[in-house]
């Protein structure tokens, strides 16, 4: 079952593209659709973004709307909050999520709190795009997966695409939302390909998970890179173990219902997410399932993530700490 909605009347055409291209397409469509939308971040303009996500957007929309900033996250994050409160819809790129620390004040005390503190008398249509994930030898300050911090923090919505279609659909929803949304992009899967609806009103509602593969024996709730690897694993295990794979997509708000329905069917749950294990995203998924489907569980819930260490530099060490499909397989084997 898929929860994608197509509100436009255009043809249901799709095209194969990478996640990077799908994000750029979403940005292009939203920049075309609404003059209040603008993009800003370090080297997002002429340089095209360090991961070439914004690419050639500056050529189409100009330097005002695809705006290079100084290396000044607190300054431009704050400017985004002020701009959003006064009638624009900024899309901010924080190059690496590890850098969010330097602008957290504006995120946690301004962006996340203003609407509530002001009694609902302001909107905060800010979208923050940032990259996560190890695997490129970038060491601890450029490889973290921090989305739990902001999924936890009240007042911010957090989404994490795993496929080109969800990358497009979630980002468009984020930009159209009147609430602050942080889009966590795993940089290892920018090249991953898939079919993407070309309808320029294709969006994926924030707060919806997607059952990417149906199965009977065990549910794997995965995010980002772990979705693709879990799907490959499910294919490999076909015939022995029937694995249901759910792309969580939206970390906050979370689609508890889809998760609970699945576990009621399979009775077993593995949660695969690249964030550190303690106090984390895994714990939140597990808790919601236990609160709502405790008596359906046939085995202990399993977590696949990073032990509570930072992402080390040496390929030998980095490979050790990063979770993979094989870790999901091991987890399945423990409970099936």
């Amino acid at each position: 079952m898929s929860t994608e909605t197509s509100s436009g009347t255009g043809p249901d055409q799709t095209k194969e593209m990478t996640i990077r291209e799908a994000i750029r397409l979403a940005l292009r469509e939203e920049l075309e659709r609404d003059d209040d939308v603008f993009v800003m971040g370090e080297d997002v303009g002429k340089f095209g973004g360090v991961y070439e996500v914004t690419g050639d957007l500056v050529e189409q929309f100009g330097e005002e709307r695809v705006r290079d900033t100084p290396i000044s996250e607190a300054g431009f994050m704050g400017a985004a909050v002020g701009a959003a409160a006064t009638g624009t819809r900024p899309v901010v790129e924080i190059m690496f999520s590890d850098f969010i620390g330097v602008c957290s004040e504006q995120i946690i005390n301004q962006m996340a709190k203003n609407r509530y503190m002001f009694g609902g008398k302001t909107e905060m249509p800010v979208t923050v795009r940032t990259t996560e994930g190890g695997g490129s030898g970038a060491a601890s300050q450029h490889s973290g997966t921090i989305h739990t911090w902001f999924a936890h923090f009240p007042g911010v919505m957090a989404v994490a695409p795993a496929t080109p279609a969800s990358a497009k659909g979630l980002l468009k929803s984020a930009i159209r939302s009147d609430d602050p949304v942080i889009v966590f992009e795993n940089k290892q899967i920018y090249e991953q390909k898939g079919e993407v609806p070309l309808d320029d009103d294709f969006t994926i509602p924030i707060g919806t998970a997607s059952v990417e593969r149906e199965g009977e024996d065990v549910t794997v709730v995965a995010t980002q890179r772990m979705v693709g690897e879990s799907l490959e694993l499910a294919e490999e295990l076909a015939g022995q173990t029937s694995v249901e794979v759910i792309d969580l997509r939206s970390l906050y708000p979370m689609d508890t219902e889809t998760l609970v329905e699945s576990v009621k069917k399979t009775g077993r749950l593995v949660i695969a997410d690249e964030s550190p294990l303690s106090y984390g995203t895994h714990a939140e998924v597990a808790t919601r399932v236990m609160e709502n489907a405790f008596y359906s569980l046939d085995a202990p819930i399993q977590r696949v993530g990073v032990a509570d260490v930072h992402i080390p530099f040496s390929p030998a060490l980095e490979e050790e700490v990063l979770p993979h499909g094989s870790d999901v397989e091991a987890a399945i084997n423990r409970i099936v």
Binding site: F38, G82, A83, A85, T88, E105, Q110, N114, F118
Partner: peptide, 22 residues
């Protein structure tokens, strides 16, 4: 908005000025 964080207002003003500019 009044602001409980010392120094948090100027970035917001820069943002409001950015709106005006854009």
């Amino acid at each position: 908005g009044a602001n409980g964080i010392v120094g948090a207002g100027p970035p917001l003003a820069t943002g409001a000025a950015l709106t005006s500019h854009l």
